[in-house]
Amino acid sequence: MRINTGRFKYRKIEVPESARPTTEKVREAVFSMLIGRIKGATVLDLFAGSGSLGLEALSRGAGYCVFNEVNRKNYKILKNNIENCKAEEISSTYNNDFRKALVLANREFDIIFVDPPYREGYYGEVFELIEEYGLLADDGVIVAEHLNDNLLSDKVLCFNRTKHKKYGTIGVDFFERA
């Protein structure tokens, strides 16, 4: 897998065996919908895996990215991918459960990528904690990737779905404050 566009274009990203990376096609579509929001943005890649979403955001001009990956082996690969892109100075990483990572994040984000293991059902809890800890900037967006047969609600707490796109079996939803 490679970074699609920007300053890290064509840099290879190693994908952990146990991870399900966001495909290049879906990443390209997501970032085309984020045009105008990326430059200088503070980004959270909560279930990072290989870090492809956060690294793509940094490559396209995001100012800073916080990565979190709970799996120890995947975390090492994530760190190597960040080093390969020479993005250590514009990022930080956590090797924690998402709940602890959200507590430690302690800042507002312009873009939050939520791409958990699909069948685990973490979406509701993630949205609750984002709201409770005030992690989404007023004009920020949560980008949630899920299986298309596991549709998320149009409204989750104070967040409204503003976009829903389908790519084969994958669904991508954008949520913003009501």
Rank of each mutant, 00 (worst) to 15 (best):
G121W: 13
A178R: 10
E24D: 15
K166G: 04
K73N: 11
K100G: 01
R2V: 12
G134A: 03
P117Q: 12
A62D: 00
N84V: 09
D138M: 08
E69D: 06
A57I: 05
G36E: 10
L34G: 05
E28V: 02
H164C: 08
E14H: 07
R11W: 01
T22I: 11
A144N: 04
G121P: 12
N148Y: 10
S153K: 15
V143W: 00
E120K: 15
I112T: 14
V15G: 05
S59R: 01
K39E: 15
D45F: 01
F47W: 05
V70G: 05
T22S: 08
K79Y: 02
G63T: 08
F159S: 09
D149R: 15
E176I: 11
R27K: 14
D139Q: 08
F98C: 01
Y94R: 11
S91V: 06
L157C: 10
G124D: 14
G40Y: 06
K39V: 14
A29V: 04
I112Q: 11
R2A: 10
L151A: 10
I111P: 03
T162F: 12
D139L: 01
V43T: 12
D45S: 08
E108T: 10
R27V: 05
F8R: 05
I170P: 03
A19L: 03
L136Q: 09
K100T: 06
Y64T: 04
R161Y: 06
A19I: 06
I112W: 11
C65F: 00
V15E: 08
E145L: 04
D138S: 15
N150Q: 12
L129E: 09
F159E: 09
I111A: 02
L152V: 07
N84I: 08
K76V: 09
E89P: 03
S59D: 02
G140D: 11
R7Y: 03
E83C: 07
T169R: 11
A101E: 05
A41Y: 03
V141A: 09
E83W: 01
M33R: 10
A137E: 09
D115W: 00
C158D: 15
F8Q: 04
D115E: 07
N150G: 00
D110C: 07
F175L: 11
G121M: 14
A41C: 11
I90M: 10
A87G: 05
L46E: 04
H146K: 10
R99K: 07
V141L: 11
S92G: 01
